[in-house]
Design a protein around this nucleic acid. Sequence first.
DNA 1: CGTGACTTTGAGCAGATTCAAGTCTTGTGG
DNA 2: CCACAAGACTTGAATCTGCTCAAAGTCACG
Lengths: 263, 263
Amino acid sequence: MDELHGPFVRKLDALGPLQTADKIALAAIEADAKYVQSGTDLIRDDDRAEGMIVVLEGFACRYKRRKNGQRQIMAYLVPGDVCDLDALDLNRMDHAIGTLSNCRVARIKPDVVSDLRLRPAVIQALQTAARVDEATLRVWLVNLGCRSAVERLAHLFCELFVRLRSVGLVQGNSFLLPVIQYDLADTTGMTTVHVNRSLGALKRAGLIGRKGKHLTIFDMPRLMSVGEFQPDYLYARKQVGGRDHSLPNGTAGLTATDALIPV
Amino acid sequence: MDELHGPFVRKLDALGPLQTADKIALAAIEADAKYVQSGTDLIRDDDRAEGMIVVLEGFACRYKRRKNGQRQIMAYLVPGDVCDLDALDLNRMDHAIGTLSNCRVARIKPDVVSDLRLRPAVIQALQTAARVDEATLRVWLVNLGCRSAVERLAHLFCELFVRLRSVGLVQGNSFLLPVIQYDLADTTGMTTVHVNRSLGALKRAGLIGRKGKHLTIFDMPRLMSVGEFQPDYLYARKQVGGRDHSLPNGTAGLTATDALIPV
DNA sequence: CGTGACTTTGAGCAGATTCAAGTCTTGTGG
DNA sequence: CCACAAGACTTGAATCTGCTCAAAGTCACG
């Protein structure tokens, strides 16, 4: 059933179980989307922003630029991810959002957002999504603050694997990673050259492989261990009156072997 | 008038103008606080948490620990800062909160929080505070991701200056910074040794000075420029129906010279 | 099949770490 | 109130991780 819906519906449904009417409302939004080229700014720093933006295909990111032009990517927006602009105080961006690849993007107008906000399950799901985004930000801070180059990349790939899997974009042990090494560099706070060398190290160790824009994870348990990846932060672990995301084996979150099993 | 109140009331009043009754309710919370020793965990990772925690004196921090024991500090909680535990989904911490110095801390029980939430101005202020915290997290990510050691420290000191000034804890150009170099290291993602050397560089350049636990900023404009500090993110720039925080000169936020003028 | 964008590789360099020793501060107990 | 001990800070030397600059190789697309 879920496979009939796009990533936006899938993601929100996973966060706060939606009703059929909710899904229909969200599906209408997915239908009304535009294609955007790689390297396009969806929102600029300092923009006065309203409504929401949803990524349906491709990768986008939140980023800031320093005066010298250096870019720091602060979050990836993968299909299903939403950026709630009304949730900013003062509706003013303190960072920009841009596409890392060609994307299909839906912009939701403020009045449509207002309609959505009449749906309790949708509100709940959006709030949970915002919390997960915040937790992710904290995890990234740890990543930059105290992990080595190889560890940072390993962690990033584990995170993307789990996130993309939840919207059905993982096939077997591989997924489409439509970003260039330059983007990975600005994400992990290193140079392209060093990203390249660290990727090489991960490949040589037999943990990952890359063919074109596809990333394959050959050894997820070891990759998780290298990146010290604990996926708990990506899940709403126990919702008030909601469902429980813990796994059958009793361990909170995902274990190394679980992660290898495609959903 | 404000000087009669503690930092909690001061801070929230600055964020979303409070009514007298609100202030009285908050002042009652400030009155009921406990002293806590440096190095105490107020909340541990994985704790099931409720209520709120307010720091009234001293410095605390949000932090995570890696398996190898390394600590990454993700936020400072200075007097007036609040940690809303009910706002977590699932009331489960994905990080810990601990004191960096001796502190005076108020724990607000869930039922008292519920009472507070009946006050619209308080809700508004707390939400704004949460937004500022999130924006701060993003700025810290940039700090770790693409600034040098000296730049990171410069940025951090500028931020603390502005935050502490807003709760009246800056005297002239100096403030109490009750943390050790080890803490600064875990904040900026470097080693104590390198923190020490970078502090030395800032001192030798005549930008800052340290006497005991007091940090003095001798040349704020240059310090801001070294850290590329733009304080906008610390302010609620335009509230819906609230007051405007932009400065007379029309520049959003604080200019270099403004920052030198004690409030 | 050529051009531009992306990736890979090498060599030398710089910023940050590690290890280690020594000095200064601070708090505590006698 | 002093002396001692523990904690915090400072400094040096060697090392290492990641950076810069530069060039060559590969891939995709018109």
